[in-house]
């Protein structure tokens, strides 16, 4: 399926002996696969030969439906999952799976915002402490706990509180602030808006984009919601059953989708026009 799309946008590069071409991208995935063992002794290929790159100061939207492997891909990028094959390169360093040891310094530039804001903040630690931990990673950074809270539109007294006094949207903003505090070069958002109200989704997504780009970072924004992705992404990659089926600029994907699956996804988005038309 991969080969049907434009090779240029896919950046599929089987020749490993051409590193200069790879170095100008911030993050480079080359033919990455990931497998899970199934109960019956079989294997499930969650990610199947994905090649992708993330440029500097770029927002890449990764779109797909549940079970397509997009979360696994996010974990692979962060080193939380062991690839079955292929190579991931971040800033000219290979991304190695995170074992029990400390995460290597050169990989700390990849930070993640998780889907569930109710699970991604420590319930027994103050917001200030959790933010300070992240700030300590980037001593040269300009952020402070206060400026972070201000950047994500939270009152300054939030720092003294614990996570359960916040709503889902507020928690997600704290999680974003924590990821930003570490001074990431690549921010990975794994469905960061999926558990939020529709009215908050676009706002939080735009906030993530603005904060990432303003701080000089790039972002991979994973979502099943094409309409939000369209709002914030420069390029979009569409994933189906572990493979990337189409990559292109947001405008091109939106206006001129090549792959059937992309077309199907786009057609399924309900329009808010009050016409009573069920999509699809």
């Amino acid at each position: 399926m991969t080969s049907t799309s434009e090779p240029g946008t896919l950046d599929r590069n089987p020749n490993h002996d051409s590193p200069p071409a790879q170095t100008h991208h911030l993050l480079e995935l080359d033919d990455v696969s990931c497998e899970y063992k199934l109960g019956g002794g079989g294997r499930f290929r969650a990610v199947d030969g994905v090649s992708l790159h993330l440029g500097r100061s770029e927002v890449l939207g990764l779109v797909g439906e549940s079970g397509c492997g997009k979360s696994t891909l996010a974990k692979l990028i962060c080193g939380l999952e062991k690839p079955a094959g292929g190579a991931i390169t971040f800033d000219a360093h290979p991304v190695k799976p995170l074992g029990l040891g400390r995460r290597p310094k050169h990989l700390l530039g990849i930070q993640m915002v998780f889907q569930n804001p109710y699970a991604s903040l420590n319930p027994r630690r103050r917001i200030r402490d959790q933010l300070s931990d992240a700030l300590a990673l980037d001593p040269g950074g300009t952020w402070t706990v206060e400026s972070l809270l201000e950047a994500v539109d939270l009152p300054l007294d939030s720092a003294q509180r614990y996570s359960h006094s916040f709503s889902g949207g507020q928690r997600q903003r704290i999680a974003i602030a924590r990821a930003l505090a570490a001074g990431p070069k690549a921010l990975v958002g794994d469905e960061p808006i999926a558990s939020l109200d529709a009215f908050l989704q676009a706002r939080i997504a735009r906030m993530m984009r603005d904060l990432a780009i303003d701080s000089g970072a790039s972002m991979i924004f994973i979502s099943h919601d094409l309409s939000v992705v369209r709002d914030i992404a420069d390029r979009v990659a569409v994933m189906e059953a572990g493979r990337i089926v189409e990559v292109g600029s947001t405008e091109q994907i939106w206006n001129d989708p090549q792959h059937k699956y992309t077309q199907k996804l786009l057609a399924a988005i309900p329009r808010v026009d009050g016409k009573g038309i069920i999509p699809g």
């Binding site: 962060c78 939380l80 995170l98 029990l100 040891g101 400390r102 995460r103 310094k105 700390l108 990849i110 930070q111 993640m112 998780f114 569930n116 699970a119 991604s120 903040l121 420590n122 319930p123 931990d133 992240a134 990673l137 999680a175 924590r178 990821a179 570490a182």
Partner: peptide, 15 residues
């Protein structure tokens, strides 16, 4: 295995 611990690991926390 909870996300807040994983988030900490991503921030470079040692064991």
């Amino acid at each position: 295995n909870s996300e807040y611990v994983i988030a900490g690991r991503l921030l470079g926390f040692s064991a």
